[in-house]
Amino acid sequence: MSSNKKLLLKVIILGDSGVGKTSLMNQFVNKKFSNQYKATIGADFLTKEVMVDDRLVTMQIWDTAGQERFQSLGVAFYRGADCCVLVYDVTTPNSFKSLDSWRDEFLIQASPRDPDHFPFVVLGNKIDLENRSVSTKRAQQWCHSKNEVPYFETSAKEAVNVELAFQTIARNALAQESEADVYNEFPDQIKLTNDNKAKQDSCSC
């Protein structure tokens, strides 16, 4: 890997609807919090340049909608991710419970070469709120059981730990990227269709 090459890191943010994914991304990229973000439709992305260990890299951060209705879109942009950020809301236990599903979903859709060592980062968001109901310990235990996934408690609203978390994300993504250089495709597990028929061989207009 030549170190002059400008690197693009693809980061996917997953988590239930409403946990603060969009807010976190905006806090990191634009350094501000607003409670005027619209609900995300399908997916969006923002890019930001960051320095990781004296290297300039571009982070392409994909924000997703947590609703089931958009699940079928997953395949398209999970592919080729360098890091996956799982977000839950410390005030809603259900969003914590869903972490497992999101993780599975990602591993299945993205089919990374080495699922056990794919970099995940878990963020427990909204710690500025009073009514916290998922304990730090519980979250840490979960992360521990998933092969020592880094864990941060953040507040997109008050910019707590956001910078630090994304620094770690970038670093881990970079590490993944250098490995991923070796293999480039992510094959399907079971091939169902011979869908390699020419995609658009006739245009009827």
Binding site: E68, Q71, K97, S98, D100, S101, W102, D104, E105
Partner: peptide, 10 residues
Amino acid sequence: VSLGGTSMSQ
């Protein structure tokens, strides 16, 4: 569907 056994259904 989830093997982890939580809420997401497919």
